[in-house]
């Protein structure tokens, strides 16, 4: 249980770091980085900026959730329930079937790479980002399928 509480603290820190990075990226893409001649149009750049802001919001939400859970440490019953949900073998089985975390990391990498490429080459940028988004959607569908199957 102590290990679980430390894990929650670690998630809060990671969520905080991700929110800060996303906020910095939002500022940089809006005010600092200048696209090349072959770069994506304003539409794609706007998408990248929006994605960075969305990431910041998701990171903040993740961090707030982790902090709320960490505060629930005062309730032993709630902590035990959260711990059981975290360690549940069926959920671990479903996650492994859906390719977590490797596929998630791969998809996130593709989306980030696509965001960077938007400043250089439009077509490649959109193709890479679409691949990343497709992987995320596919993974969610597979997870849903196995959640119903098992």
């Amino acid at each position: 249980m102590e290990q679980f509480k430390k894990e929650l603290d670690r998630r809060v820190k990671w969520g905080r770091a991700a929110a800060i990075i996303a906020a910095i990226l939002s500022v940089l893409t809006t005010f600092v980085f200048k696209p090349t001649e072959n770069a994506a149009s304003d539409l794609v750049l706007g998408f990248v900026q929006g994605a960075a802001m969305g990431l910041a919001l998701v990171a903040v939400g993740y961090m707030i959730q982790a902090m709320r859970v960490r505060r629930a440490a005062n309730s032993q019953e709630l902590m035990e329930k959260l711990y059981r949900e975290e360690q549940d073998e069926r959920q671990a089985f479903i996650r492994s079937k859906a390719g977590y975390p490797a596929m998630t990391i791969g998809a996130a990498t593709l989306v980030c790479a696509g965001a960077v490429l938007a400043f250089f080459e439009r077509t490649v940028s959109m193709a890479v980002m679409a691949s990343g988004i497709f992987m995320i959607v596919y993974q969610l569908l597979v997870k849903l399928y196995y959640s119903r199957k098992y």
């Binding site: 035990e80 329930k81 059981r84 949900e85 360690q87 549940d88 073998e89 069926r90």
Partner: peptide, 10 residues
């Protein structure tokens, strides 16, 4: 589920 350390869904 509580007694055996898993979730109700399992």
């Amino acid at each position: 589920a509580m007694a055996v350390g898993t979730t109700r869904q399992t």
